[in-house]
Design a binder for these strands. Sequence first.
RNA 1: GGCCCGUUCGUCUAUCGGUUAGGACGUCAGGUUUUCAACCUGAAAAGAGGGGUUCGACUCCCCUACGGGCUGCCA
Length: 474
Amino acid sequence: MPGPAAAPPVVTRFAPSPTGYLHIGGARTALFNWLYARGRGGKFLLRIEDTDRERSTPEATAAILQGLRWLGLDWDGEAVSQFARKDRHAEVAHEMLARGAAYRCYATPAEIEAFREAARAEGRSTLFRSPWRDADPATWPEGPYAIRMKAPREGETLVEDAVQGMVRFRNDQLDDMICLRSDGTPTYMLAVVVDDHDMGVTHVIRGDDHLNNAARQQMVYDAMGWPVPVWAHIPLIHGPDGKKLSKRHGAVGLHEYAALGYPPAALRNYLCRLGWSHGDDEFFTDAQARDWFDLPQIGRAPARLDFKKLENLSGQHIAAMADAALLHEIEAFLAATAQPPLTDVQRDGLSRALPCLKDRAKTLPELLEKAYFALTQGPLEPDAKARAAVDVVSRGILDELTPPLRNARWSRDALESVLADVAASRGVGFGKIAPPLRAALSGRAVSPGVIDMMLVIGREETIARLSDARSWAG
RNA sequence: GGCCCGUUCGUCUAUCGGUUAGGACGUCAGGUUUUCAACCUGAAAAGAGGGGUUCGACUCCCCUACGGGCUGCCA
């Protein structure tokens, strides 16, 4: 009995142009492609669209690769340089010429610009109709020419999009796009189709700023007799005010999110959920995202960035992470932000402190800040509030606490009863005992529980800090 | 200007003709607590507007408004 029909292999790709850092919108596009391919045992490819030699830089390419790696998105094979494939693009353009699907256009950029300007001024359509479209090839003169697609003028082009549904374009609204420039270099419109075809891309998941382009690109597929990929044009991400995302909205580059200390897993979760949903699920793992992610659940309206929600999700991921993984994450963060690495003693202290720290921090730097008590060796530098907490009365409390702490068994129960005894002997509640003790132990007015801290730093250090605090200038 | 896409609580979203329109973040109130955070309980909070279609529309169609995209020998 034959098995179920083999699912066609899925091939997706992310195709950024290397003209700057990887921005958050691009990162989400990459994530969607990655999720779609990985969830189906398919391939996720990377292509650098560097045909614009003026604006493309190797630094930008490096930044994009680094951004993807940080986000944890791995791609199959080497990143493809689109520029390196320019001969192949030219070959296809000439093939279209030979098939009569394209023609030589000798109109110069200056002429075309003049036409458009006049058309704009008179409020006419700026669609350029080349006079060379129907010229007999026998009459083609020598001299520089661009190769233009001979697009149909009648009827309509139907783009079946997995997100937007069936989109119709009247062919008389589309012009004959240039495929090969007069200097022999390919345009994006041609290159993207040739590359996607040659790379075997089956699903094109990209920003919906390309939806209009899909119609024209489809004409190239048709002209060459190539199968059209599944289109999925996803809405762009907007700033919190609903406007197009830009610098003034705060972090737009992926590297900025890394520097802010969001764990990559949290950002993946947040980005995945932005403009896509799976019922009421909000917090989920990569494995779940891979299982659940699909095209029909992608929203059709642009989504706004919500830093509060990102922060909340980040806190949940930090709290849920295993201690070892979290420690690893912290060290990576330190390295990425060019901060001094942890010493062995600090690493040891931090890993013991993690359990009482990790559900208190929303980001990595916040966690580090709250880990001050466990990371500091030698005398603490108390902040103003901690200093203020150690007044004359408080010094007495610290004095009274010291002897029993010397003898107590170093366990939660035993330490609790030491504190209870001292409170009782002074006729006060925990509320009087805890603040000075907290200040002495952490140098802060805000910290994990006092007993948690004592258990982490140990008896010797606890007693030393109590003693240090007595000498703080009040 | 032309073409294309979109519009449910402040935000992300569920709903795929019949629901008290659900969840999450945020906000507010209360609880717990040695502080902060976390946590628990509760509350306020939405179908852009107008026409249709239908026994019945958030859901389907049209118009308007608003937002976005494209309109390059950029990608």
